[in-house]
Write a protein that binds this DNA or RNA. Structure first.
Length: 307
DNA sequence: TTCCAGGACGACA
DNA sequence: TGTCGTCATGGA
């Protein structure tokens, strides 16, 4: 439901939705440059009619009556802008995810129900598909803080800088930009040869039309994993993590994720390698990806990251 | 010093 | 098909 008024453009969202907790879901880095979450506002540079604009979503609701006020370039959007940006905002906030149905599916598992109760209303915000693919390649086998450092170096070197609320905010470099990078340029940024090769190669696949991002979004999760893993640098973990984080696929569980493994160990006492973890997660059926997200978030509440 | 991080790839048996 | 070495860096 969309309620444009004289003064503002307000989107009413599907409850429950804990906006402050959700927009900081991926808060491992306070230096994230492609999106901001501060002062109750989520900000990101998005494309509108082929040009970058600053999308800002301000919390004006509650967990059980969630709503955000949408502005573009710090002003009220026109009706045409709102028609295009409202679906995007809903996608970014995961408005299609029915948490009541998820919680109902978890109700017969007392341990998991305790987790969902503690994190009531939490949804992981999504990021654009291309940006997410790059970030999962960057994040392969390195610590999260170091992955954010590498992303920051890539974005400040090759992205487009804007400013919002006194902080720099960047538009992530387009595939055309990354495709043209000389791999040697990334070595001083501390990208390994593999990471540089994977990133640039993937960008070149997109530019050449070999990798179609629209097709990824249109495919069912299993088919999308099969499609993505054809490309060099994208394994099961990267494909599943991308589908979960960029597209919000509730059935995409990165079974080889260190955080997911730790979460299952912490909650159920089971240390499971990838294949056994997949078998274990089958009990969650089409919700296994959301369970994975909740385990990641819950794990942080057990062991808050050091600042 | 060793091991682990939000892994992937290629060689080899 | 499954295993192992390699790539690379930071932090505990």
């Amino acid at each position: 439901m969309m309620m444009p008024t004289e003064e503002r453009a307000t989107l009413h969202l599907r409850p429950p939705f804990d906006f402050p907790a959700s927009i900081s879901f991926w808060r491992n880095s306070t230096g994230e440059l492609c999106e901001h979450w501060s002062d109750g506002i989520y900000r990101r540079v998005v494309d509108l009619h082929g040009a970058p604009v600053l999308l800002a979503l301000r919390n004006v609701g509650s967990v059980d009556a969630p709503a955000v006020e949408l502005t573009v370039d710090e002003r009220r959007p026109t009706a045409d802008e709102l028609r295009l940006l409202a679906p995007l905002a809903r996608h970014l906030l995961g408005d299609d995810l029915d948490l009541h149905a998820f919680y109902a599916a978890c109700a017969n598992d007392p341990l998991l129900a305790e987790v969902t109760h503690a994190l009531y209303g939490l949804k992981a915000p999504r990021s654009p598909l291309w940006e997410t693919l790059c970030f999962v390649i960057i994040g392969q086998q390195i610590s999260v803080p170091f992955a954010y450092k590498l992303k920051e170096r890539l974005v400040t070197r090759y992205g487009t800088r804007f400013a919002a609320a006194g902080r720099p905010l960047y538009r992530f470099p387009a595939p055309e930009v990354v495709a043209a990078i000389d791999p040697a340029e990334l070595a001083p940024l501390q990208f390994s040869r593999n990471k540089a090769s994977f990133l640039i190669g993937l960008a070149q696949d997109i530019v050449a039309g070999r990798l179609e991002l629209e097709r990824v979004a249109a495919l069912a999760t299993d088919a999308a994993v099969t499609y993505l893993t054809q490309f060099r640098g994208i394994g099961f973990w990267s494909a599943e993590f991308t589908l979960l984080r960029a597209l919000g696929r509730a059935d995409a569980l990165p079974a080889n994720d260190a955080g997911v493994r730790q979460g299952i160990h912490a909650l159920y006492g089971e240390r499971l390698p990838e294949q056994q973890l997949r078998a274990f997660a089958a009990r969650w059926q089409a919700w296994r990806g959301v369970v994975g997200l909740y385990l990641l978030a819950w794990l942080r509440t057990q062991r808050p990251p050091k600042q």
